[in-house]
Amino acid sequence: MTAPIELRTARLVLSIPTGDDVDDITSACQDESVQRWTTVPSPYSRRDAETFVRDFVTAGWETGKTRTWAIRLASELDGDGRSATLVGMIGLEGIEDGAAEIGYWLAPVARGAGIMSEAVAAVIDHAFAADGVGLQRVQWRAYRGNRPSARVAHGAGLRFEGTRRLGAVGRSGREDEWTAAILNTDERSSAPGWPAEAVGG
């Protein structure tokens, strides 16, 4: 079993989501962008959030195959180190043979302030650290057109690896998918090679 690990940055605390976060998760997952660009159930109910926290998150940490963190603002921590507000989610999935996939979403209220970029950098640091997960490769995938997610991945140093034609299954059927990855030997800076439609102005 892998004990949940808390990560901290200048502005954020990344910690395991709990039952206290169910309402915040339910609310955030009503957002049109979260529904469009992620694989959360649609429509999304409170029961979906309860199942996510109770089953998916817990099982992932127990098996070591998935590490999921709630993104919280350090400025909102109370005296016991707890934050009442969850503003997003980030995780490593499919941890195996030195590799994993990173995924993330952010609530509308927290967008536009670089919060996800900060969270992604922290998770990639943890993924590659010898005292973290010790991975060699972190992969990212997104439906083609998800420019906010692509810009975060690009800024974190991931290298674009291509567009998989009809490589993903969306809510309305198959659609194109962007893929990128970073190795533990890569520089953590924006790399060339990304298409303008993904990261352009």
Rank of each mutant, 00 (worst) to 15 (best):
A150H: 12
T9S: 12
Y44V: 08
V138A: 08
V199K: 11
A181N: 07
A70H: 09
G64F: 00
D21Y: 07
F128D: 03
W105D: 02
A99V: 07
W194A: 07
W194I: 13
G132V: 03
T38V: 13
T66Y: 03
A127F: 01
V40F: 06
S189D: 13
I5H: 10
W69D: 01
V40Q: 13
I90L: 02
T39Q: 07
V109T: 14
E197I: 08
V109N: 01
Q139D: 09
T26L: 08
W37V: 02
V152S: 05
G162Y: 10
A196E: 15
E93L: 12
Y143S: 07
R174L: 15
R72A: 06
R137C: 08
I102C: 11
A198T: 11
T58C: 02
A156Q: 10
E96V: 14
Q30I: 01
R151N: 02
D55P: 04
T9G: 04
N146W: 10
A122Q: 04
L166D: 14
H126K: 01
I71Q: 07
W61Q: 01
G200W: 11
V133Q: 11
L166H: 12
T51M: 05
E50T: 08
T51I: 10
R141W: 06
A28R: 09
A100Q: 02
R147N: 04
E6M: 03
W140S: 10
A122L: 03
A99Y: 03
E62T: 04
D48L: 07
P192E: 11
T9Q: 12
S117A: 15
R47W: 14
G114M: 05
G98R: 07
A113K: 15
G200C: 10
A28Q: 01
G81P: 14
I182M: 12
V53H: 09
A181G: 13
A10D: 15
S172Q: 13
L14A: 10
A100W: 01
V53Y: 05
G157T: 11
S33V: 05
H154R: 11
T38M: 08
G157S: 04
G91E: 06
T179A: 14
Q30T: 12
E62I: 00
L73E: 14
V152M: 09
A110M: 09
A110F: 07
S45M: 05
L77S: 02
S83V: 04
V133H: 00
S45P: 09
E175V: 13
A49Y: 06
F52Y: 15
A110Y: 13
V57S: 01
A196S: 12
G132S: 02
L73R: 15
T39V: 11
I182W: 04
V123Y: 06
G157Q: 11
S42V: 12
E197H: 14
R151Q: 15
T66S: 01
G200D: 11
I124C: 06
K65C: 00
L135T: 00
F160T: 10
A121H: 11
A180E: 13
A28F: 09
R72Y: 07
Y104N: 06
A196D: 15
W37T: 01
V138P: 04
L7C: 03
P195G: 08
T66A: 00
G173S: 14
A49Q: 13
E118N: 05
G112H: 14
P17W: 09
R54Q: 14
E76K: 13
P17G: 11
V109K: 13
P43D: 13
V123F: 02
T63L: 00
T185G: 08
I5Q: 15
S83K: 04
D48R: 14
T18K: 02
R151C: 11
E177D: 03
